[in-house]
Amino acid sequence: MRAWKSLLPFVLGLPVLWLIQLWAPPQIAIILVNIGVNVILAVSLNMVNGFTGQFSLGHAGFMAVGAYTAAKITLAFGESASVSPLVWNNGVFFIALLAGMGMAAFMGLLVGIPSLRLRGDYLAIVTLGFNEIIRVLIENMSWLGGATGISGVPPYTSLIWVGLGVLAAIVTARRLLLSTHGRALLAIREDEVAAEAMGVDTTGYKVRAFVLSAAFAGLGGGLLGHYILLVTPKSFTYVKSIEVVVMVVLGGMGSISGAVFAAVLLTSSLELLRGVDQYRMVIYSLLLVVLMLSRPTGLFGHREVWDFAKSWRRKRAEALS
C-alpha cells in the first residue's frame, strides 16, 4: 500500500510533465529547468542541513561529481545507429544519471565518514574544503577539459527528466522524514547527546543522510549539464553551495515544502529582475534580508504544506461539530 502510494506522484506527474514539455517555449523551459535543478538541490541539502541539523557547505562539489560522471558516460556511449534515438538516448541518459548519483554518493561516503564525527562548524569547513578540492582537481585534469570543462555534451535533459527528478527528490525526502530513520535524524538535530543516550547511532545516521543528499546533488548536476550542454568547473564553485544553503534556510530548516518554495521563489525572482541589469543583485539581496528579518525561522519554519491541510480539516471538523 505504502510503496504504491509513493509511485502515485510519478504516475500522475508524467502526463502533466509531458504537457508542460509540449507547451513550454525555450525561454520558459530553461528557467523551469533551472528551477527544477535548484529544487532538487535544496530538497536534498535539506536532508542534511534541515532534518539532521548538520551544516554542509559542499553541495556544489557533489553536483560537479555527478555532472562530470554523467557527461563522460553519455559522451562515451555516443549515438547508436541501430536503436531508435528515443530509446537509446533516454536509456543512456538514465544509466548516466544513475552512475552520476552513485559516484556522488560514493564521494559523500568518503567525505562523510571522517567528517561527520565532527560537530557543528567543523563539518562546514570540511565540506567547503571538499568543494574547493573537487573544483581545483577538475581544473587541472586535461581529460576532464581543464578549466574550460567538457563542451559538446548531448542535449538529453528534457522537462520530463527534470520533473521526474524533482518528484523523486521530494518523495524520497518525505518518506525519509516520516520513517524511523527520519525520526532518528530529527532527534540528532534537536539534541545529539540525548539521541546518542537513547541508543541512536548518530554517526551512522548522519553518514546515511549525507550520502543520500550527495546522490541527489549528483542528479541535479547531471541534469543541468545535459541541458546547457557544457560541464565546467565554473558552475560548481562554493558560491553555488551557498546559494543552496540560502534556499534551505529561507524555506525553513527541515521543511521540504519550504525548500521547494524557496528554490522556486529565488530562482524565478532572479529571472523576473533581469530587466534591471546589475541592480537586480541588490534587489535580490534586499529581498533576502527582509525575508529573514520578518521570518527568522524561514518561510515555513518546520511545517509542511500537508500540515496546513491537516489543521484546516481539523478546524472544519470542529466547526461542524
Partner: peptide
C-alpha cells in the same frame, strides 16, 4: 543581460535573447 559570471546564467540569458 547580466550573467553574474555563471555559465548556466549565460545560457538562460542567451535563450531569452533569441527566443523571446
Amino acid at each position: 543581460y547580466d550573467d553574474q559570471g555563471k555559465p548556466e546564467e549565460a545560457a538562460t540569458a542567451m535563450t531569452r535573447l533569441v527566443a523571446q
